[in-house]
Design a protein around this nucleic acid. Sequence first.
DNA 1: AGGTGATCATTA
DNA 2: TAATGATCACCT
Length: 222
Amino acid sequence: MIQPPTTILELKKRAQKLAGRTIGQLATEHDADFPEDLKTQKGWQGQFIERCLGADAGNLSQPDFRLIDVELKTLPIDYQGKVQESTYVSVVDINKQLALMWDESVVYHKLKHVLWVPVAKRKDESISQSTVATPFLWQPNPVELSLLKTDWENAMELIAMGKIHQLTAKMGEVLQVRPKAANSRVLTDSVNERGEPSQTLPRGFYLRSQFTQKLLNQNLKK
DNA sequence: AGGTGATCATTA
DNA sequence: TAATGATCACCT
């Protein structure tokens, strides 16, 4: 078990050591097995990198590194540096009675400081051949923060109005809401437009890949 | 049941 | 082919 990093600098140093290494090399060092592909182990890579860096939040709704309040996100890219997928952030609170403010939200707490770990992979390449690119720490600038806050507030307002059925993945400039469940038949408690108890498919907040692509590009320029 | 880690796979 | 909607594994 790797100890959690106690300072940002320590985390940064650990992360930088991963750059240029393949997942196969890291798995050997950490005595870990890796799956053939991610079809049935979609979260394996993210959890493996967490383990490599000493993340300690488990599945609590908190940033991964609790001592320093930093969230870890792996970012799937190709060898041209193109982001391959959106980034899951957290579940959507569909049945919270009190209306939360942005500053108190899980989304804000997780995104206010993120260690991005880009992992490059070719489509026909095995997991073990995937290569960690250059990890970078990110804190949203005022513009980014404003975009996130607006998207979050718009989504939460619809939910508070009982109009979650109107909430689609097409909404949100940088932060969207999409299903987040074992399958499409799963239901969770909600409240409808008349304020009556209801049920709906669980949803999650996701960062659009166009947004994370910009973060990656900005970091390359530095 | 509902969080974590996400990517898969079909649609538009 | 990008984006949306669906799904997989593990944990508490």
